[in-house]
Design a protein around this nucleic acid. Sequence first.
DNA 1: GCGTCGATGGCA
DNA 2: GCCATCGACGCG
Length: 198
Amino acid sequence: MRSRKLRRADYAQPADVLARELVGKLLVHRTAKQKYRARIVETEAYLGPVDLASHASKGLTGRTKILFGSPGFAYVYLIYGMYDLFNIVAGHKESGQAVLIRAAEPLDGWKADLRGPGKLTRAMHITRQHNGIDLTGQTIFLLDDHTPPPALSVTPRIGIDYAKHWKDAPLRFFAADHPAVSGKKSASRPKSRPNPPR
DNA sequence: GCGTCGATGGCA
DNA sequence: GCCATCGACGCG
């Protein structure tokens, strides 16, 4: 069966619902020279102005303008002076919700380390230039290739200890036991394993 | 294998 | 002054 590009209605769901659905979907970036494809393995949901971990909690500013726009657009911003993070605007128009794409697995024999939101954007050449781009277009988009959805693990989000009670909200989703989840060591497999764990 | 820390720049 | 990160470094 042919892959289906996600459309506006797919994105117009609450961020936590969308974040779950996006694990297992394909992220595609077409440039003039290349096409990058990867399977999303880890996401986080940011629930809007009430969510103290979300930029939306700062209200409508120059930076959050896209975030408070329509679903299905890219919200890309600079963090720590050196990393661009790729988010997808979710929910209904102006709700300020988004899903952060944290890790993916490269496809088509492409060798890259996409385990982490900063590394993913760098390897896929997604930058702030793409802030506000329409993800139902031809440059960056998501595909459902009808692969069965993976079993999900759920944990609190990463790097948001400042967010008061929101820091413990279970809004990070990843494919259980998948090797391409952020924070994991690379495939430098077998160290000393004298006795296999039972 | 772990904890700690510096880089780096846009934003309010 | 912060920060939705990452990799280098020191430890023992």
